[in-house]
């Protein structure tokens, strides 16, 4: 079930795997910035980064021989779906956990706590 990477594909595997994380982070970053700043024009860029993530995942899958096995092919599908929905899910969690007003006597979080 494990088909080792060919020598010629070593660099492709390392690079595409790194790009999976980097494009994933860029997607999450742009997605979150778009929501935090209320700047919907950033959202297409976020999904552009996700497109880069898809290319990276597929390149990694090809170079690491993941498509030669049903289990690993399913994992590739799961990666693509998981990376897509994770920022959405975590955004809802962020909004949910920060939604309530601070308790009486406690100031809101966004304050300057230091002397000028």
């Amino acid at each position: 079930m494990i088909e080792p990477v060919a020598l010629a594909n070593f660099f492709t595997v390392f690079f595409s795997a790194a790009m999976v994380i980097m494009t994933g982070a860029l997607y999450a970053l742009l997605f979150a910035f778009s929501r935090v700043r209320g700047a919907p024009r950033l959202m297409p860029l976020a999904y552009g980064a996700y497109l880069g993530l898809c290319v990276s995942v597929l390149t990694l899958a090809q170079a690491a021989n993941l498509f030669n096995n049903t289990f690993w092919t399913a994992i590739v599908g799961l990666m693509l779906v998981g990376y897509l929905v994770a920022p959405h899910a975590i955004w809802h969690l962020c909004v949910g956990t920060h939604a309530e007003a601070p308790p009486a006597g406690e100031p809101p979080s966004a304050k300057i706590f230091q002397q000028p």
Binding site: A28, V36, L78, M79, G82
Partner: peptide
């Protein structure tokens, strides 16, 4: 394979908090 998902989530949370605090 799913290891990066919490990392992606962490980025979203960090940006949210940076904007919030």
């Amino acid at each position: 394979a799913l290891e990066p998902i919490p990392l992606v989530a962490m980025v979203v949370h960090a940006v949210f908090d940076a904007g919030h605090h």
